[in-house]
Design a protein around this nucleic acid. Structure first.
Lengths: 116, 116
DNA sequence: ATTTCTCTCAACCTTTCGGTTGACAATCTG
DNA sequence: CAGATTGTCAACCGAAAGGTTGAGAGAAAT
């Protein structure tokens, strides 16, 4: 099973922000400098820099410094781990969805019965 | 593609906390009351109740009230959506991992060259 | 050498998070 | 009925998130 610890906390937290998800999407196409990642986001460079740091701490981004620019690249391994964590629940959204929905429908029916 | 909006913000945010992930795991085995979900977590009932609310707002948990107890059940659909969001990056952790590692190794080699 | 460009850092601010306590509503139990 | 159980809500607290600005380090361009 996937380890359920602080590491995955940071990954899910990093993914819980739209700006950061956008950065990852961008990095999936090509390596980018911090400035390039900041451009589409309507915020200061300093704010974008912080977002990059969050991604970096979560292990989702590597950085290498070339001259004055910091070049970021996608580091997808933690995404794989997050995906593996989620895969535990695959059986539930595949099979139990029907069962759960059946329960909910039954409840609604029961309520209707109560009201009548 | 999976919609990249506030909805998924809430799902990833809900998943970014260990206590809440534990609750989901528990709910994957059986339905639980709020009190049952609170028991293993070392915190007040009120705190656990808040966690359940976060899970509920993210669409991960349904609740039905029976008498004084609130019975929670897993609602796995948002997990499926999160998984689908992640699956976009599958190609990167499958194939590009090698390429990215090659780049990093090349960088390290270059640094060694600089130092010598 | 000076200026410009890229980026980080520190300080600060406001909002949210995660927890507590106390009060209360509602429900079972005796 | 009185009393215990189950859970929420509101108020509060400290810490963390997410943003700003201003200063400055470091590399590049002129």
């Amino acid at each position: 099973m996937v380890e359920d610890s602080e590491e995955i906390d940071q990954v899910f937290h990093a993914l819980s922000n739209r700006t950061r998800r956008g950065m990852l999407r961008r990095l999936s196409r090509q390596e980018c400098t911090v400035g390039e990642l900041a451009a589409p986001a309507e915020m200061s460079l300093a704010a974008a820099s912080k977002h990059v740091q969050v991604l970096e701490r979560a292990g989702l981004v590597n950085r290498r410094v070339r001259g004055r620019q910091h070049i970021c690249s996608l580091s997808p391994k933690p995404l794989k781990e997050a995906s593996e964590w989620l895969s535990f629940y695959e059986e539930f959204w595949n099979t139990s969805l029907d069962r759960l929905e059946a329960v909910l429908v039954a409840d609604l029916e029961a309520e209707k019965g109560d009201n009548a």
